[in-house]
Amino acid sequence: MMMEKLKIFIFLVYLICSPAWLFSQQKDSVFAVISDVSGKVFLKKAKKTEPLKAVFGMQLMQGDQVLTQKKSKVELLFSDGNLISLGSNSNITISGKQTDVHGKNIGTGLAGSFSDLALRSDSKGEMGVLIDLRSTETDQTIIPMSPCNTMIKSNQPVLSWESTKPAEEYVVRVYNNNGLVWEKKTSETKIKITGTASVLHFGESYFWNVEGIDLIDSFRSSNQKFTILSQDKILELESMEGKIKDFFRDDLSSSSFHSVLGAYYAKMGLLEEAIREFEMVKEANPESSLPHEILGKLYSDVGKKDLAIIELQEALKLEKEK
C-alpha cells in the first residue's frame, strides 16, 4: 500500500513539474485540436488502422482523419485560428495545408491562448508546491475561497471564505503595501467591500484575511492576494468578451466557446473566471482528460492545492483508461 502511494506521489510530481505532460508530441507538429464533440465521432490517426473515439482536446497531426456518424457533430480549432464544424456523416483529413481548410476564423491570438494553456507552455515554478500531497488547506480553520491569487474586475469585490469551526463573528481586513485600508465585522462567511468613497483602486494589488472570534479564542486565515484590473484593461476585456460571444453566438453552450473564453480569461489573469469556464467544459466532456489537466493548473495557481490534486488524479485516471 505504501509503495503504491509512493508511485502515485512520484507520478504527480512528474505531472506538476513537466511543462507538457498531457502532450508528449512537439507543439509545432500539431495542426488542430478537437474543441467540441457531440454524438459519435471518431479519430483515425495517420498510419493507424483502428479508429479512436474522439473526445475534447485530442490533437490532430498531419494525415489524421476525423469522421462523424449520423446525428453527430465535431468542431476543430486550427492553430491559425480557423474553426470548422463537421456535421453528420462527414470526414476531414488533416493535410497540413491550413489554407485549404475553410471556416470562421477567431484569430491566432485567441487560438494561441487556448493552445498555450492546453500545452502548459507557461508552466510556473510555483507549481512545485504540489509535491506535498497533503494540502495546507486541510490545516486551516478558516479557508479563503474568493478572490484568491487572481485578477478581478470590480473595485467592490465580494470576499468569501469557509470555516471548519463556528465563530461568533468574523473580522475581515484588507491591506495594500502601505498597511490596512479596510476592516469590517460580520457574522456571515462573505462580505462585499462597499463605501461612499471607493477604498480600493483600479490597477492596484491588495491582500486580505479573515479572523474568526469566539468566546475562548480567535483564529485567522492565511493572506490572499488579488489585483484589480486597470480601467483600460477592463475596457479591453469587455471588448474581447463581446467579440468572443458574437463569434460563438450560434452556440454559446459549446465547449469551443467556453474553452476559448476560459483561455482568454487565464491569459488576462482572471483565474477564477477561467476556472468557471473550464468547469463547464469538464462537465460537458466527462471522458476527456484535458479539462482536468487545465483545472489542475488553474486551481494550483489560485492556491487550492486539494482541488488541483483531485483534478490531476482524475486526468491520470482517464489517461490510463485510454
Rank of each mutant, 00 (worst) to 15 (best):
M3P: 03
F9W: 14
L12W: 10
L15E: 13
L22V: 05
L22T: 07
F23W: 12
S24R: 15
Q26G: 05
K27D: 00
K27E: 00
D28Q: 14
V30H: 06
I34V: 15
D36S: 13
D36M: 05
V37K: 04
A46F: 14
K48I: 04
K48N: 09
L52N: 08
L52E: 12
K53Q: 05
V55E: 01
Q59F: 09
L60E: 04
M61G: 07
Q62N: 02
V66S: 01
L67F: 13
L67E: 12
Q69C: 04
K71M: 05
D80I: 07
N82K: 12
I84P: 07
I84M: 14
S88T: 06
N91W: 14
I94K: 05
G96L: 03
T108P: 06
G109V: 08
G112I: 04
G112Y: 07
F114W: 13
S115M: 14
S115D: 09
D116E: 13
D116Q: 14
D122F: 10
M127A: 08
G128R: 10
D132N: 15
S135M: 04
T136W: 12
T138G: 03
I142G: 00
P144R: 00
P144Q: 00
M145G: 00
S146Q: 13
P147A: 09
C148F: 00
T150W: 12
I152V: 12
K153S: 01
P157C: 02
V158F: 03
S160M: 07
S163N: 09
T164Y: 09
V171Y: 00
V174S: 01
Y175E: 02
Y175I: 03
N176K: 07
G179A: 02
E183C: 03
K184D: 02
K185R: 15
I193G: 01
T194G: 12
T194M: 10
T196F: 03
S198T: 06
F202N: 10
E204W: 07
E204V: 03
Y206W: 08
Y206K: 06
W208C: 00
I213T: 09
I213F: 04
L215V: 06
L215E: 13
Q224I: 00
Q224T: 00
T227C: 04
T227K: 12
S230D: 08
D232I: 10
K233S: 04
K233N: 07
I234T: 03
L235N: 01
L235A: 05
E236H: 08
S239D: 14
D246M: 07
D246Q: 13
D246S: 15
F247K: 03
R249S: 04
L252W: 11
S256Q: 05
F257L: 02
H258G: 00
H258W: 14
S259T: 07
V260M: 08
A266K: 11
K267E: 10
G269K: 09
L270P: 11
R276E: 02
E277Q: 15
E279Y: 03
M280R: 13
M280F: 05
M280G: 01
M280S: 05
S289E: 15
S289Y: 14
P291H: 06
H292Q: 03
L295R: 08
K297Q: 11
Y299I: 01
V302Y: 04
V302H: 02
K304Y: 09
D306K: 14
D306I: 09
I309E: 03
I310Q: 15
K317H: 14
E319W: 12
E321N: 11
K322E: 03
